[in-house]
Amino acid sequence: MLKAKIFVQLKPSVLDPQGKAVTNSLHNLGFDKVLQTRISKYIEINFDSDDREDVSRQTTKICDSLLANPNTETYHFELEEIKS
C-alpha cells in the first residue's frame, strides 16, 4: 500500500495573515531571528495500491480537482510505502 503525503501551500505572492500573526508571536517570545512564517496544509491519503505511477497520477488529479485552489495555492507530494 502507498501513502501520499501532500503539502498544500499558499503561493509566495499571496499574503498569509495567519503566518504574519505567528511571526509576531514568535518575535514576542524572543525568537528575533525569525524572518517569515507561512501556514500550510498537510494531508495524508492512503491508497490500496502499490503502483507508484498510478498513485502519483491519481494524487495529482486529486490535488488539481479538490485539495488545492489554483488561484491561491500550490502543492507537492511524496509517496511512502506503508505495511498493511
Binding site: 499571496v14 499574503l15 495573515p17 495567519q18 500573526a21 485552489n69 488561484n71 491561491t72
Partner: peptide
C-alpha cells in the same frame, strides 16, 4: 461560486484574522 470557476479569484481569511 469562485470554487466552481463561475467567478474568478478566491476568498481568503480576513486580514484581521
Amino acid at each position: 461560486l469562485t470554487e466552481t470557476g463561475l467567478l474568478p479569484g478566491a476568498l481568503m481569511m480576513n486580514s484581521t484574522l
